[in-house]
Amino acid sequence: MPAGASALSLARPRTLKAALALLAEDPELMPIAGCTDVFVGLHFGTSGQRRFIDLWGLDELRGIALVRPEPSEAPVLRIGALATYTDIIASALVRRRLPMLVAAAREIGGAQIQNRGTLGGNVANASPAGDTLPVLAAANARIVLRSAGAERRVAMGEYYTGYRTSVRQAHELITAVEIPPVAGRQWWRKVGTRKAQAISKIMMAGVRGPVVRIAIGSVAPTVVVADKTARCLSAGGTLAEAQALLGDEITPIDDVRSTREYRHQVAQNLLAQFWRETE
């Protein structure tokens, strides 16, 4: 049971503007949305947080749409931070533009978690096993961060700074994820501990187009964008060469779910499968 739930405070702003103002005043507030991670931390006593700010009611962060941030730019897919996995699975737009994200969303938790868990929450939680993160990284997505005074966009590849740390400052909120058009075939595979309700042992998202992009989860403190491997394949290198490079780009560990050896081996196998299936 959560630590003396009555001792936990919750600010409930009605607008994004109000939320950002509150955060500017008090950056210690921890943002919550679907609570599928936050409440687990509270239940197990691993979260020391006592003061929270609730974003769940901010409908302005829910939409999924094509937008043109710059008039000169091609339209990008903009997924509001509060879009749930269920929203993503149901969105024809996401299915068309980013089917690998739909595939990833379908494999998260069960229906109850998909109904509550949000894309913004998955990014913010910053787990190396976050299911959507390899997809976002492989798609070259950028995270839209807004504070009371400013808005900035950070590429996924630069967003995480270490294990469960990111460039997001305490007074900033993730408002959306923007995904530019993805050129090429998209590929996604999660290897979990079982077929549903599973935390991944390893997962890979790949894009095979004029430029190859590959991102892998659960093999390092943060999601790994395997640039060297992808460049090798883009440049016409052999699969074996790419597999060897991949082995150097990841740093998996032993944990209660799997082993270092397994993750190493399966990462290379997944690369081969990606390459074979997107030919």
Partner: peptide, 8 residues
């Protein structure tokens, strides 16, 4: 459907 253990 939601898990009521994870809903404030």
């Amino acid at each position: 459907a939601v898990d009521s253990c994870l809903v404030p």
